[in-house]
Structures are given as C-alpha cells and as structure tokens.
C-alpha cells in the first residue's frame, strides 16, 4: 500500500499527463522520423481528448494512408486505418450508422485535399459531427518527398525538382467555403494553443476541421535547405504564422503570406447531419 502510494505521488510529480492511458504501448515505437511534428500533434490530441473526457470505447479514429495516418495504430480506441483519401468517407459510414460514436480523423494534407478532396468538401457541406485533423506538412512523406496540394509555390520536392509551379490550397479556406461549422489552424510549435484548439474542435458539434502545420525535416526540410527540424519549426510554424489576436491589429499587407492561427470559424447554430437524419426519421415515422 505504502509503495503504491509512493509511486502515485512520484507519477504526479514527474508525469503531469498520463499518455499511457491512451496509447497501445505494445505498438510503439512509432514510425515517425526524428524531428517530425506528428508526435507533438498526437500528444496535444490525447490531452484534448482527456480534457473533453471522451470514453475511449466511444471514439473511432479513422485515417487514410500516409505518415499521419499511422496515428490510429498507436492509440487505444476503435481504430480504422482505411484507404488513401477515403478516411472521411469510411468515417461518415461509421458515424451515420452509430451517431453516438465520437469520430476523429487523422490525415495528411495530400490525403485530405488531393486524393480525398471530394470527400473532404462534402463532409464539410453535410456538417457531419467529426473532427478532422489535417497534419499539414506540405509534402508526401511516406512515399519520399513529393509535391502536395499545400506545398508552397517555388518549393522543391522530388516531383517539383525545378520548383513547385502550382499554387497551394489553403485548407482552412476550403473547409470554410465548403460549409464546415468549425475551422481552426494551429501548429506543432504552438503546442498549448494546439491543445486548446483541438479541445474546442472535439467539443464542437458538427464538422470540425483543424489544420495543424507541422514539419517534415527529412523530406521537406532537406530539399528546401532548412538546417534542422528546429530551424523549420522556427521558420514555418513560428515566423510563418500569426495568432488570430495579432492578426486583428494587422493589415492584409502586414500579414502577408503568413497563416493566421486560432479558431477561424465557429458556427454553433448549424444543424448537424446525424441530428438532421434523426429528425427526418421522427418525421417520417409519425407520418407512417
């Protein structure tokens, strides 16, 4: 008894948050490279889940294919590692069939905005209750560093060896325009802000999209002359963004090509898709 109490006390001092509660420890170590931001995103996400108090058995975490899509394998939920681009469509099926489940989708920028772009915009349009977390690192990491829909113009990749000639998508703008009722952006660098944003996203009923800018030092960093992972975080995530509060006092010119962080849209009045379906069932069953 005394020993147990001592351990507990020690834990309280040294481990402020018990990540183990949510991890499948036997499935670690994860596949992510040193310096990759995905682990930070996962930590923030687990803290947010804890803060909201979701029951692990009520969570379905779905993903597609890619580095970030390996996230579900490491967490102790109902986990669905689906196909490239299709995570949101699979998750739509789970949610509609069992609306009491809490849906989290962890996917990369290519998965969400290129191969799965159609599912992304239509899930936003339906305002179905799920939280889509886009690990946005501007590169296809798992296949070795190809250009993605969020790669900045001019950036180097293995399939833009002369510099990217295509304009990039603004994932948050796409989500907003498509009808998502909660849209936010943060970065792996701003870990505390990220946790808050993710907490708000999970608590929000309806389609929540969170774009998390994070860094791929191995495939994006090396090709684009970043000295280190921390250098990338400084340049892209810190200097490349401004908080919503800061942005309020800045002109568009002053913001320039920096991304605005924080909650960009939160519409609490919109009807959520599964609620709308329940209303439909109630209506037609009365008529019957």
């Amino acid at each position: 008894m005394a020993e147990g109490a001592a351990v507990k006390k020690k834990q309280k001092v040294n481990v402020p948050f018990d990540y183990d509660k949510y991890l499948r420890k036997g499935k670690l170590p994860h596949i992510w490279c040193p310096g990759c931001g995905h682990g930070i995103v996962l930590k923030s996400l687990l803290r947010a889940i804890d803060k909201v108090g979701l029951d692990k058995s009520s969570i379905c975490m779905a993903s597609g294919i890619g580095c970030s899509s390996r996230t579900p394998g490491y967490v102790d939920f109902n986990t669905l590692h689906s196909l490239h681009g299709r995570a949101i469509a699979f998750a739509t099926g789970v949610k509609l069939a069992k609306p009491e489940m809490n849906i989290l989708v962890t996917i990369g920028d290519g998965d969400a905005l290129a191969i799965g772009g159609n599912h992304f915009i239509h899930a936003c349009r339906r305002n179905i209750d799920m939280t889509v977390i886009i690990y946005s690192n501007a590169i296809y990491g798992m296949t070795g560093g190809q250009v993605s829909p969020t790669t900045p113009e001019g950036a180097m990749s293995t399939t833009s060896p002369h510099g990217n000639m295509e304009p990039a998508f603004d994932a948050c703008a796409v989500a907003e325009a498509s009808g998502a009722s909660f849209v936010a952006r943060s970065t792996a660098y701003h870990m505390q802000e990220l946790e808050k944003v993710l907490t708000a996203a999970i608590e929000h009923k309806g389609m929540s999209v969170v774009e998390v800018l994070d860094s791929c030092p191995v495939y994006y960093g090396r090709q684009n002359k970043y000295k280190s992972a921390s250098h990338m975080m400084e340049e892209i995530e810190k200097k490349g963004t401004v908080s919503g509060a800061q942005a309020k006092n800045l002109s568009e010119e002053e913001i320039g090509d920096r991304f605005v962080r924080g909650i960009l849209k939160q519409d609490k009045d919109g009807v959520e898709y599964c609620d709308a379906y329940d209303n439909l069932i109630a209506k037609v069953q009365v008529k019957k």
Partner: peptide
C-alpha cells in the same frame, strides 16, 4: 428512415463503398 435505418447518397461511387464498409464496422 421508416424503419430507423440510414441512407446516404455519397459524393461519389468510391465514397459510397467506403461508407458502406464504415456502416458495417459500426
């Protein structure tokens, strides 16, 4: 909907199959 079941017209054929699998997993 008359029996409390669910129908969804997805955005494409691929989504139709994906959501069908999701529904079954649920």
């Amino acid at each position: 909907p008359l029996i409390g079941g669910k129908f969804i017209q997805m955005e494409d054929e691929i989504g139709g199959m994906a959501a069908t699998i999701g529904g079954s997993l649920a």
